[in-house]
Design a binder for these strands. Structure first.
Ligand code: MN
Ligand code: MN
Ligand code: MN
Ligand code: MN
Lengths: 216, 216
DNA sequence: TAAAAAATTTAGACTTGTCTAAAAAAGATG
DNA sequence: CATCTTTTTTAGACAAGTCTAAATTTTTTA
């Protein structure tokens, strides 16, 4: 169907389009760790295949066909991550790179059976929604911990930063998916926050608070 | 580490080397569905990497390093086939092509955990032995049904032909792994055989008998 | 709004893996 | 052993995906 490189470009365009209407060449180059000139070449190919709308110098967005492919790759990525954590006992900070390879296994029959085997999970180990077999994504509305005020509380449901370093830090602090935290105090000087969780107090920096997502 | 193409060449050399001391360019071209000239090019690369011993015009064989890689690919192939059949309920004739993709997932930690998750299976759905995590392969000594004589019996433990068509035929006749069959009669004219299995009689052609493997 | 800066595209090259056609080597045959 | 056939390698080309350097377009800034 599509090459591995094409799939990775479509996926990256999809992710970037969540925060930008049109995705720029340089944004893609940064995310894909490649050069802008390589991106331009690929954008022409994807436009020829009618998977993206591309106007030179104006950035790109996905066509319906392109979005469908992107969402399917993301579905596979997240289902494999769920499998690795729930069935093979990996930690949430260990699974991303493996899933980057596994998301390109082509069979949809396989992924649908895997989905069923695991009981149709709704969220991956990082709290990201798993698109269903029709490509529907439930985007729940998450806020960073940094956006709430003292005495408010919320349940941890996701992360903005998916890096190993951040996930390991959260794990160590027991700041994991499903935990409920309450803001006790915000330090004015550096905007760090003191949280109450399961009877304990944890202090987190502003940067951590920006990258930890909750629902109220 | 190695590219997908390199891995496929090494795997093919390994498979062919089971019946030939030295593997020829044309044998590889046929198995890999490519041209002899492409094979020659790749053999030079693999020889440069010291994964094969290659003397022009004399065919190739794997070095210890090359065999290690080949066996690991085969281990992954067979474990994923086992997973697809035992956990995702695929039929034995449906899993080969998916495993051809999955065998290239690189993580050994992943495959070792998958192995454990499934209880360290010894044989794949087609009866082929699964190499252990140290690369040891238990090659049991199988004979084709065609090699036994009336009144002898054996247990089906493998197939020589792995094609979908053959596997589906066997499935339909209930000639599956683990079944015990006894030779009742051999038709002199075409060497077809009449087998007794679970109280029923089944007639199979010489070609089927050649490709169905048993232990006595 | 003209020059400077940044972003993007184009030009040309390189790698991997493939192909066809031609040359060379090995093996078979009389 | 000379020739014919088969196998294998070489030569040259191509597609995909990437790169660097240069040109072009857009955006910012003075
Ligand atoms: Mn991930
Ligand atoms: Mn994830
Ligand atoms: Mn197989
Ligand atoms: Mn098999």
């Amino acid at each position: 169907m599509n090459t591995l490189a094409e799939e990775n470009y479509l996926k990256s365009i999809y992710h970037l389009a969540l925060s930008n209407e049109n995705v720029s060449t340089n944004q893609l180059a940064a995310l894909l760790k490649t050069k802008a000139s390589s991106v331009t070449d690929m954008l022409k190919k994807l436009a020829d295949k009618e998977l993206i709308n591309y106007t030179p110098y104006q950035g790109v967005n996905l066509t319906v066909a392109g979005e469908k492919i992107a969402v399917n790759i993301i579905r596979k990525h997240r289902l494999w991550e769920y499998f690795l954590v729930e069935k093979l006992s990996f930690k949430w900070d260990q699974v991303h790179d493996m899933a980057e390879e596994m998301e390109h296994i082509s069979s949809n029959e396989l992924i649908n059976r895997l989905d069923k085997f695991m009981g149709f999970p709704k969220y991956d180990p990082h709290g990201d929604p798993i698109p269903d077999c029709n490509g529907l994504v439930k985007t729940h509305d998450l806020k960073p911990v940094s956006s709430i005020t003292p005495n408010q509380s919320g349940t941890i449901c996701g992360v903005r930063d998916h890096s190993t370093l951040f996930l390991q830090y959260l794990e160590k602090q027991s700041l994991t998916i499903g935990k409920t935290v309450e803001v006790v105090e915000i330090i004015e000087f550096d905007h760090s926050m003191i949280l109450q969780m399961e009877g304990k107090r944890i202090q987190i920096s502003r940067e951590v608070a920006n990258n930890l997502l909750i629902v109220l």
